[in-house]
């Protein structure tokens, strides 16, 4: 997991983002047990409170669940993970299009450009 944060945005949101990516990219497998809040916080070098808040958010989003005695686990719901992947991809796409627009490309031209780059 790559825990690079910038101080400009709420840290916990950035943690949520990073963890979501880890789940989507199968760094954490469905059903896998997550390290403890404390260990995660130490890995990420953030405040355990922040990590706790981020994990709560992910739980509300349905990507992880807590089993009281055994800890936190990644959801087994493949659909939820797929949905998360889709929404992350949407963000990337929107960002790409927005930046290309800033460089003077139209949406179509940007899409073509992308296809060309992908073929290489």
């Amino acid at each position: 997991m790559n825990f690079q944060f910038d101080n400009e945005r709420p840290i916990y949101l950035q943690v949520v983002d990073t963890l979501r990516r880890s789940i989507v990219s199968k760094q954490f497998l469905p059903g896998e047990r997550l390290p403890s809040v404390r260990d995660l916080a130490l890995q990420a070098k953030v405040n355990p409170n922040t990590m706790q808040k981020a994990l709560s958010e992910l739980e509300s989003a349905g990507l992880i669940f807590t089993e009281r005695t055994s800890g936190k686990f990644v959801t087994r719901d493949e659909a939820a993970i797929a949905e998360a992947r889709r929404s992350l991809a949407n963000e990337v796409a929107r960002r790409y299009l927005h930046e290309m627009e800033g460089l003077g490309f139209s949406a179509e031209a940007a899409a073509d450009y992308l296809t060309e780059e992908a073929d290489k």
Partner: peptide, 28 residues
């Protein structure tokens, strides 16, 4: 790292500094 490792739920840490950029990410 030492501060974070030492963190306990019933304890608090008060950090005084003017070097804000270095520590702000661990502040509640």
């Amino acid at each position: 790292d030492t501060i974070l490792q030492n963190f306990a739920e019933d304890a608090s840490v008060l950090l005084s500094t003017h070097l804000i950029a270095d520590i702000e990410r661990i502040l509640d």
